[in-house]
Design a binder for these strands. Structure first.
Lengths: 143, 143
DNA sequence: ATACAGAGTTGTAATCATTACAACACTATT
DNA sequence: AATAGTGTTGTAATGATTACAACTCTGTAT
């Protein structure tokens, strides 16, 4: 179900986005690290392969990929954005203790109320925050 | 249904939050301007009444109110936060053309999937983006 | 080959919301 | 009147993001 790296490569071509080395690497990283990384994580990791990589390039690439609909921007964090290569509708849960972001299934379309029938909806996000099971059990041990 | 300014004043007392002039003014502004204002909007408007007002005070007050659960932080914007005195569950739709944020009803609890039964959910947000009816009809006229 | 154009990359500087922090003001109590 | 505690203020720092101009790379036409 998840798109392979080759699928993504093809989709870049279809959308007339140049297949530069840097862009492919960003895409590859997102395809292989589905942990909703930040720009800084992507940059730091890819720098090991591409020592001359600029953070601006990472920003540029992510903007292009987001505009093309190949990645989804997650702004559940207050400060920095995160990026998700899974563009299917699903919810995100952020643990306020460990910071991990969990995916969960959501039938978002069933949510859309009558009131929005005259609106054009381009982007749908469901963000929850709280404590994940791991952090919950840690807390119990302490108390 | 919506809490009056007096209700809010009472709730501050209950939660042992000092009833300073500045805090009451921020609360009053939020109660009367349910347009999801930014910090800057609140600050600029209240400055007319309180010329010595500091933006830090607005930030401090909003943080205290948010921690007390009296206001909800909306981070649908990429850059600046917005604040909502309506803490009941509801969705937010942001028009990408005019920037207006619309409220809409959502039965968020019906969304919670089995997968999250072991999570403690403290905060639930549903954010949509797209075009509002007004901006849609404007576009049609142009084309 | 060489020159050229267009696309992509890089690094630095600016932007801007938010936070940190220290000094000041205000209130109530003794 | 002194003091303690709470709240406010202004300035400086922080940090993610963007703007921008110079540079590189690739392919094409001369």
């Amino acid at each position: 179900m998840d798109p392979t790296f080759e699928d993504l490569r093809q989709e870049l071509k279809t959308k007339n986005i140049g297949l530069s080395h840097q862009r492919l690497k960003v895409l590859e990283y997102l395809a292989q690290n589905r942990c909703h990384p930040t720009v800084d994580q992507i940059y730091t990791e890819l720098q090991k392969d591409i020592p001359t990589l600029s953070k601006t390039t990472v920003y540029n690439t992510l903007r292009i990929l987001a505009e093309a609909g190949l990645v989804k921007v997650i702004s559940i964090e207050d400060k920095e954005c995160r990026f998700d290569i899974d563009t299917e509708d699903h919810g995100h849960f952020k643990c306020e203790s460990c910071g991990t972001i969990f995916d969960f299934p959501v039938d978002i379309d069933s949510l859309i109320p009558e009131e929005l029938s005259n609106f054009k909806i381009n982007d749908k996000n469901v963000y929850f925050k709280g404590l994940c099971p791991g952090c919950l059990s840690n807390k119990k041990e302490i108390n």
